[in-house]
Structure formats: C-alpha cells, structure tokens
Simulated scan of single mutants.
Amino acid sequence: MAASVKDVAAHAGVSVGTVSNVLNRPTKVNAETAQKVLAAIDELGFVRNDAARQLRAGRSRSIGLVVLDVANPFFTDLARGAEARASEHNLSVLLGNTDENAQREAEYLDLFEEQRVHGLLISPLGEVGPELERLRQRGTPVVLVDRSGVDRGYSSVAMDDVAGGTLAVTHLMSLGRRKIAYVGGPASIRQVADRLEGARLAVETAPGTSLEVFEAESLSVLEGRAIGELLRARPVGERPDAIFAANDLLALGVLQALVMMGEVRIPQDIALIGYDDIAFAESAVVPLSSIRQPSELIGLTAVDLLMREAADGEQAHEHIVFQPELVIRESTAG
C-alpha cells in the first residue's frame, strides 16, 4: 500500500500539518525538521496525491495543449515552445493529439476539463464548438493556437495563412508558372482553407493562370505521395507546371512520387513549394522551398496569452498574427 501523509508524519515524528508545509510552504519549516520529513519521504517512497491537491486548489499546475497531428514537426516545435514558457511559470504541459479526428478532440476536451487544467491551448479541427465555451464559462482560460479567434471572442495566436497562400503562389507565378495545382486537405481545417483562399487571390491577379485543387484526406506524406502518383501518371501536357502544398509533409510526399522514376524534374518540369518550413524541408532530396512559420514562437506566445487571461479573466482578448516568410530553395530556384 502506498505511504500516506499520515505515515510520513508518524515516521518523522511531526504533525501532518508540518508535512504539508514541507511539501507546499517549505519556508515555514526550519531546516532540521524539513530534513527529517524529506528523509521520511525518501524512506517510505511517498508520492504526493496531486489530484487531491488540485481538487483543493480548484485548478491544476498543468496546461492542456491539443494539436491536430503530433507527427507533424510544426506541432512538435510549437509544443516545445509552449513547454519552455510554461516551465517558467512552474507549469507542465499535457499534450493531446487529435490526429485530425473530431471525436478524439472532444475526448481530450472532456479529459482536460476533468483534470481541471490551468488553461487550454488548442488548434481546433473545425469550427469552435460549445465544448470550448463550456470550459471558459467554468473559469478555464482558452487560447486558440495556429488559428485566428477574432470572430469567436477567444484570444489567439496564429499566422496570416491567407497571406501565406498568396505569397507561395505569387512566387510560383514569378517563375513564369501558369498551371498551378494546390494540394491540401481536409477542407474542414481552417488553415488549409485559408491557404487555398490566399492561392486563389494570387491567381485572380494573373489572367491566364489556372488553379487546380487536389483535396487530401490528411496532411501527411502518404497522402502527398498518392496525389503525386496521380499527377505523374498524367500525360506530360496535362500536368501542372507548379504545385503549392498546404504543408511540408504533403510537399515531401509529392516530391517523392514525382522524382521516384526519374520522369519529372523538380523544378525544371514542375516547381514545388510547401508550408511550415520544417527541418526536413531543407534536407529533402531536392531541398524544398516553403512558407516559414515561427512555430516555437507561436507556442511561447500562446502561453503568454493564457497566463494573462488566467490572471485577469476580464481583460480584452488578444489576437496576435505573425506574417509569413518565403524561404526559397532548389525546388523552385533550380
């Protein structure tokens, strides 16, 4: 049976209150007594019941972070930034991966509500639903990550994905490319839709330029390869001369499919650009041009917003939007 606070107190010859002070308010206990209690904790293998402490405090020392796909290095870097900033506030980060699945998203929201997290950071799959509003009504601050919340009354930190889409396609058109394909999906993901909107805005400025849309089932390398195979199977005259992928994983999959048989040259036959500028983009067989997002900075900033909301729930919501940066490599510059 696990040792209790009472067991520690009896073993150290002190009161339960003294043990509690050592654990929670050590400055109130003299050094000799504290050492006796710590020795008893070590000898008995005592582990504090943090859940009970959270119930008494009304809120835990953890932040919930819900992301679309933890396999995507963009979200891994974002989580790293959030964790770094949270540790400065003596908070930990609990990571939930929805894998672009609405049911899993709802389950994580329920779990984090039960855990009474200090706050919630979330990159929602679709529209912001009543679950988030319920969390907020119960006193849990919520910040949207990689997603604008201006129209929903939530603080948010994101990148201007419409501008990013426009920047990517404008770059492709500057190379003289006029048959452009957009690879992205599912369309229910706001970031995907915004990047497509930006691509369409760019095409509208250039008469004679076309935009063909390929909707992927997920933002993965395998989906990119599947669409790349479809494009490679087309007659040469029916292929696009440029591709904008909604993220780098899709772009890397497309790249693999196109160059695998040596039939398509990147960028001579087809120029290719991705989005996010993950570490793998630079080390691809043809280094990948991309639209850079400051992923770690987004995570850091999201925690900053969350802490301000937790400190003053009545403050006006903040919306921080980073601007995209074009990174040109061989996949468009060869």
Rank of each mutant, 00 (worst) to 15 (best):
G165I: 01
D160K: 02
G165M: 00
V169D: 01
A193C: 12
V183A: 02
G165R: 00
L167T: 09
S188R: 15
G176E: 11
S174W: 07
G165N: 00
D161P: 01
V162R: 04
R190N: 14
A181S: 14
V192T: 14
L196M: 11
R190W: 05
A193Q: 11
G184Y: 09
D161A: 06
H171A: 12
L196N: 08
A187D: 12
T170A: 12
T170P: 01
V183G: 03
R178V: 10
A187C: 08
A158C: 09
Q191W: 02
D160M: 05
V162H: 01
S155V: 11
G165Y: 00
S155N: 07
D194P: 04
A193I: 12
V157E: 00
I180Y: 03
A168K: 02
S155D: 11
I180M: 06
K179Y: 07
G176I: 13
D161C: 02
L175V: 05
S174A: 13
K179P: 02
R178S: 14
L175N: 04
Y154F: 15
S156C: 05
I180D: 01
A158T: 14
P186D: 08
Y154P: 07
Q191H: 15
A187S: 15
I180G: 02
R195W: 13
G184D: 06
A181N: 08
A181W: 09
L167A: 09
L175Y: 10
A163D: 13
G184R: 10
T166H: 07
V157M: 00
T166P: 00
Y182M: 11
A168P: 04
D194M: 11
K179C: 03
G176W: 12
L196W: 07
G176D: 12
R195S: 11
A181T: 07
M159K: 02
I180T: 05
L167Y: 02
G164K: 04
